[in-house]
Each structure stands twice: as structure tokens, then as C-alpha cells.
């Protein structure tokens, strides 16, 4: 009998905290130094599709949580029907005040737009990324707008509401 996926991950990464969120979804929390290793490891197991990269702002703890979701089009037990398709959710925490991390483009090439988006909306700097240019936003904001300390209402009041109406002669 082959080892199950959580056992394989626990065996190779003793620091990883593996828990099953629900059926077919596996959450793995690792220290940030091990991220590239674990992503390469699961990619070699057949998880060759990066679904998305996301970011959570834990402002009280002073940390950003980066979430990498990987899956494979062929299910882990070899069925091609898609039944039993496993998702792995890899989470790391980085420091919020010094928000830099390294890019994972060498492992998963399609991480490029996701990292650009996170750079723009959360202000996380991905070192080694070839082009961290604006992707979605047209303007520059005082604080990256998806951070929890961005006061959206105040921004609207100060900026959009301050634009004058067109004054027309009657």
C-alpha cells in the first residue's frame, strides 16, 4: 500500500502543519523558507496546475498570509474523470512591516499575474519577478487599497467627492 499524500508531506517536511480542510482539500502551513521546496515537491507528485495565489492581511498579528492553491487535472489516484481531484492549499506567513518575498515563477510560471496583482493591491514585493508593473489600478493610492488599514470611505470622501461638478450657465 502506498503512503497517502499527507504522510508523504509530513515525512519530507517535518515543520509542516498538515490538516484536511474538507474532503479533497488539504491545507499545509509551512515556514516561509520551505515554500519553494514544498511547491517543487508537490509539483513532482503531479500537482502541475497553480490555481491561484492569494493574500490575507492579518493586521493584528502584523503578518501577511500568502496562500498558494495547487491542483492537478488528473486526480491523485490516477483517475482522469476528475473525481477525487485533490487540492493542496499551501500557506505561509510573512512579516507585514517588511513585506518582501521571493517569486515562485521558476516553479509555476503562471504565478506571474497573481504576484503582480498582490504586489499592486497589498504592496508585497516579490523579489525576482520580471515585471511588477501596474496591472489593474489606474491611480496611485496612499496605501495599497486591499490592506486593512486603507480607509476606503475616507478615500472616497477626500478624493472622488472632492472633484467639482460641472458648472453650467443657466
Amino acid at each position: 500500500m502506498d503512503k497517502t499524500l499527507p504522510e508523504k508531506i509530513r515525512e519530507n517536511f517535518p515543520n509542516a502543519d498538515v490538516s484536511s480542510v474538507e474532503e479533497e482539500r488539504l491545507a499545509v502551513t509551512v515556514p516561509k523558507e520551505e515554500l519553494i521546496d514544498i511547491l517543487s515537491f508537490v509539483k513532482n507528485l503531479g500537482f502541475d496546475h497553480l490555481v491561484m495565489v492569494s493574500c490575507v492581511d492579518w493586521i493584528d498579528e502584523g503578518q501577511f498570509e500568502l496562500v498558494y492553491i495547487v491542483t492537478s487535472y488528473v486526480s491523485y489516484n490516477g483517475e482522469s474523470s476528475g473525481k477525487g481531484r485533490q487540492h493542496i492549499i499551501v500557506k505561509i506567513r510573512i512579516d507585514r512591516s517588511k513585506a518582501t518575498f521571493r517569486t515562485i515563477i521558476p516553479v509555476y510560471q503562471n504565478a506571474e499575474p497573481y504576484e503582480r496583482e498582490i504586489h499592486e493591491l497589498y504592496g508585497v514585493d516579490f523579489q525576482g519577478h520580471p515585471r511588477l508593473t501596474p496591472l489593474l489600478l489606474e491611480r496611485e493610492y496612499p496605501v495599497p487599497p486591499f490592506r486593512k488599514d486603507f480607509d476606503s470611505r475616507n478615500y472616497v470622501k477626500e478624493f472622488f467627492d472632492s472633484i467639482p461638478e460641472i458648472e453650467e450657465e443657466k
Binding site: Y141, V156, F160, E165, I166
Partner: peptide
């Protein structure tokens, strides 16, 4: 979307 960071609130300030 009146309090969104990226949605303009009144269109008639920019086009008639």
C-alpha cells in the same frame, strides 16, 4: 459601490 476605492461616483462629472 459608493464607498469603493476604484469606482467613480457620479458619471456626469466626466462626460455629459
Amino acid at each position: 459601490y459608493w464607498d469603493s476605492y476604484n469606482t467613480i461616483n457620479s458619471l456626469d462629472k466626466y462626460v455629459p
